[in-house]
Write a protein that binds this DNA or RNA. Structure first.
Length: 272
DNA sequence: GTCCAGGCTCTTT
DNA sequence: AAAGAGCATGGA
């Protein structure tokens, strides 16, 4: 599958901190999502997708190809110089539409952690408990483990995947699922009701819940605040520490989540 | 050695 | 309600 897509850059997406399952391969990436695997490469505005496992009909939706980023960027541009620079720098970022269940576990792991260690933990979880989808150049790529595949995994085994003290939170989440929780069903809820439901899970606080809403449920108004974004906002916007989130969600509305991605990406590459 | 990372939970004021 | 301690772990 070959498509011409503006406002789309595979390297920026892979480095944007929203997914930990884009594995560098030759000039592009091998991507694992939704029980499928593909390679993706790009030259100019032309992207090429090659399915490695499963059909390819869902990849455009996963990649957000049907979203009008020209309009979104147009609506965010001109608010202030810093955001304009951030958008210019990361104009190829798109919010991927990822699986809610996978996002809950991934972002529980993300708390007080760094991207490298999160990537490593998700990879180990998948290799040890997920299903092998394909093999490329002698390297196997594994699906994210299902609730069934994690059903009998112990807290100690999670710890051995490098989850640290978050082991018990993932364990408890899997128990909840086997007691009847279905995160897919939560998508009918309003933003606030959905967030409240997620906040009941151990290891899910305000920031992690906002990430799950943004990356797993296509809710783009929330503005996740982590240590990076906090520094960015305090340094470049007229806001005090106790009003960060309400300020950001109002100021960037209705594109809080996307604005946050541009600022996060820009801020991490311009640490001073 | 200390500090930090896409913070959260639990306890104490 | 608000503030503080503690938390696994590897890299800088």
């Amino acid at each position: 599958m070959i498509k011409k897509v503006p406002y789309f850059n595979i390297h920026q997406i892979a480095d944007s901190g929203q997914t930990f399952r884009w594995y560098p391969h030759e000039k592009g990436y091998i991507v694992v999502a939704n029980h499928k695997a593909m390679t993706i490469t790009q030259e100019g505005e032309t992207i090429q997708i090659t399915s490695l496992f499963g059909d390819s009909v869902d990849w455009p939706a996963y990649l957000g190809l049907d979203e009008d980023y020209e309009k979104i960027i147009d609506e965010l541009t001109g608010k202030d110089d810093y955001l304009d620079k951030a958008i210019g720098f990361g104009r190829g970022i798109r919010i991927l539409k990822q699986d809610p269940y996978e996002m809950v576990i991934t972002f529980i792991i993300s708390a007080n952690n760094n991207i490298k260690r999160i990537t490593s933990a998700v990879k180990l979880l998948s290799e040890r408990y997920g299903t092998c989808l394909c093999e490329v150049d002698g390297v196997s790529y594994y699906d994210f483990p299902t609730p069934e595949e994690l059903k009998n995994v112990t807290i100690e085994e999670y710890r051995a995947c490098g989850l640290g003290y978050r082991d018990q939170y993932v364990y408890a989440f899997i128990q909840e699922i086997h007691k009847g929780l279905d995160v897919k069903k939560l998508k009918v809820l309003s933003d606030t009701a959905l967030k409240d439901a997620l906040l009941r899970l151990k290891g899910v606080g305000e920031k992690v819940a906002n990430c799950i809403l943004l990356f797993g449920y296509d809710r783009k108004e929330g503005f996740p605040i982590d240590t990076w974004i906090k520094k960015v906002l305090l340094a470049h916007y007229p806001v005090s520490e106790d009003k960060l989130k309400s300020f950001a969600e109002c100021y960037f509305k209705p594109h809080g989540g996307i604005a946050q991605q541009y600022l996060f990406y820009y801020g991490r590459f311009h640490k001073n």
